[in-house]
Amino acid sequence: MPKSLISIHDFSKEEILHILEIAAEFEKNKSQNILAGKVIACIFFEPSTRTRLSFETASNRLGARVIGFSDTGNTSITKGESLKDTIKMVSNYVDLIVMRHPLEGASRYASEIASVPVVNAGDGANQHPSQTLLDLYSIKQTQGKLNDLKINMVGDLKYGRTVHSLLQAMSHFSPNFVFTSPDELMLPSEYKEWLDGKGIPYTETRQLSDHLNDSDIIYMTRVQQERFTDLMEYEKVKNFYRLEKSMLDNVKPNMKILHPLPRLNEISTDVDDTKYAYFYKQAENGMYVRMAIIAYLLGYK
């Protein structure tokens, strides 16, 4: 079975650091034709324009050609073809598969039946490891290091998969966490117990103002309506936090605001022009990190 990237746990600390290193190389030299003659499939069983464009551009900048579909509207999948048959067929055509699927575990399953590496570009609310790696890359880029940082995660800490993956990945680098969330969206106890087991310190608060001024990274998240079964619950929390420029007067000079995008109302647009806003650059970084993931899994870096 070729090496795939399905969950952030699939990469060791060394591999994570290696990916960040090659990504930095790709940022310096954005087009490298090392995958000329290769074909990469981007198969998206649910639409995600942002992620798909990032992977497709990454593939193109490496010189590979891209095939695929952006949703299952006009494919044989709507005619009832099994995931197994689709993956078996596609993996005979291409050198690597990038896959997004609404069902959790679909990418893991695909990686076990495919003859080529699979990159998970999101399986429901489960994992989205390229997002985690680009978050790490952006943290390192803005702080010059990954070790001993205070990371303040804000918003939906209950359902937010980016938060869960990021805190697990950051655990390699002796972080100090702040978890800012409404009571309804607090970090699940399994993650707190996991941090306790690793001896990683954290504090929890409802107030966004509590730890704005002593954090190195403010990691804002969107409250995603689709994760809620109870719409009343969603209405109560959807606009709970709003980060505005006026709140940033006393923050640390090195502080940067990250957000996996798209945002709703949680970051006011007047923040965009401050030196603390980093989310557009963070999205750009996604391309370099995805170039690094693809090149690494295909054995070129």
Partner: peptide, 9 residues
């Protein structure tokens, strides 16, 4: 929404 509840796995 686990894949095992939707495909023969």
């Amino acid at each position: 929404v686990c894949v095992t509840n939707h495909e023969k796995i």
